[in-house]
């Protein structure tokens, strides 16, 4: 294909008379970033939504008007329903996350540091990995009923896998020369784990944590729609049966905020905990 050759005079500045005799190539990449463009799409969408609602094109029974959603959110906060549901949901997700992270980390350490542990743990975890956590829910309901333990354990199971996989991977990626150094300065097992293994596996662990947080949220949404009597999911399910789209939208926005905040916290922690790294990210 022929290159489009342009005889382009240099634009601007004092050199307007100078004719550029080069062949200026057509740009193939997307070019430099335009500031603020991240918000154009969402704002446009919001504008379309408002326009469609105001002109009556969009039936409020299909999707409530944006201002009604905002009013509803204010009302739900004022009468305490939203804070209460949010507290319940956040507690469930946090508890499942803590249990899942603890178990996943412990399994990764045992499996990563001993061949016996690897033989016992790695296989079962890989098998579990092939079964989506949510597919285990019918069995968990049968065993644990539909109460809180079932919900928390379903979330924990979803969290455990990415924590295990990424921590194990990070741990096995630690340079063996550091283990040799630890031997020459006579570190014990505990000190070796504390000074070499945990910090060395931290980048992997934190990556796993980012996946884990999103998994926890996904599991939260699903368990709350199964026979829940409290939480954001319950609020949405109830609104769905009464056709209150404005409450459903509020619930979805809260889920989105939960996800964004949790991911932000993990990324902030990552930046702090991995200050020792000199990578493309930091320089």
């Amino acid at each position: 294909m022929a290159t489009t050759a342009v005889e382009a005079p240099i634009v601007g500045a004092a050199s307007e008379k100078v004719t550029d005799k080069r062949v200026v190539r057509r740009r193939l990449g997307p070019g430099p970033r335009i500031p603020g463009t991240l918000w154009i799409g969402p704002v446009l969408l919001l504008g379309l939504w408002s326009l469609a609602s105001a002109t009556g094109v969009l039936d409020p029974r299909t999707l409530s008007e944006p201002w009604v959603v905002v009013e509803t959110a204010q009302r739900l906060i004022a009468d305490g329903r939203l804070p209460e549901a949010l507290a319940t949901s956040a507690y469930r997700a946090a508890l499942g996350l803590v249990i899942g992270v603890g178990v996943g980390l412990a399994l990764a350490l045992v499996s990563g540091l001993s061949r016996v542990g690897e033989a016992l743990i790695d296989g079962p975890v890989q098998v579990k990995r092939a079964i989506p956590s949510l597919a285990l829910m019918p069995l968990l309901i049968l065993w644990l009923g539909i109460g809180e333990p079932m919900k928390v354990i379903t979330i924990a199971l979803g969290v455990l896998i990415p924590i295990y996989i990424h921590t194990h991977n990070g741990l096995r990626g630690i340079d063996s020369r550091y283990a040799e150094l630890a031997e020459t300065v006579s570190l014990g097992r505990g000190a070796f784990v504390r000074h070499v293994v945990l910090p060395g596996a931290a980048p992997g662990f934190l990556l796993g944590l980012r996946f884990a947080v999103l998994n926890a949220l996904l599991a939260l949404v699903v368990v709350e729609q199964v026979n829940a009597t409290s939480g954001i999911g319950h609020m949405i399910t109830l609104a769905s049966s009464y056709g209150q789209t404005e409450i459903i939208v509020v619930g979805l926005v809260v889920y989105a905020l939960l996800g964004l905040v949790a991911d932000g916290i993990v990324r902030f922690t990552e930046g702090k905990a991995l200050a020792w790294r000199r990578t493309l990210e930091s320089h």
Partner: peptide, 20 residues
Amino acid sequence: VFQDSRLLPWRRVLDNVVLG
């Protein structure tokens, strides 16, 4: 002492020196 300094990249210099 090895050919590479073998300092733990995630520990500050003093913590490396007093390691163990």
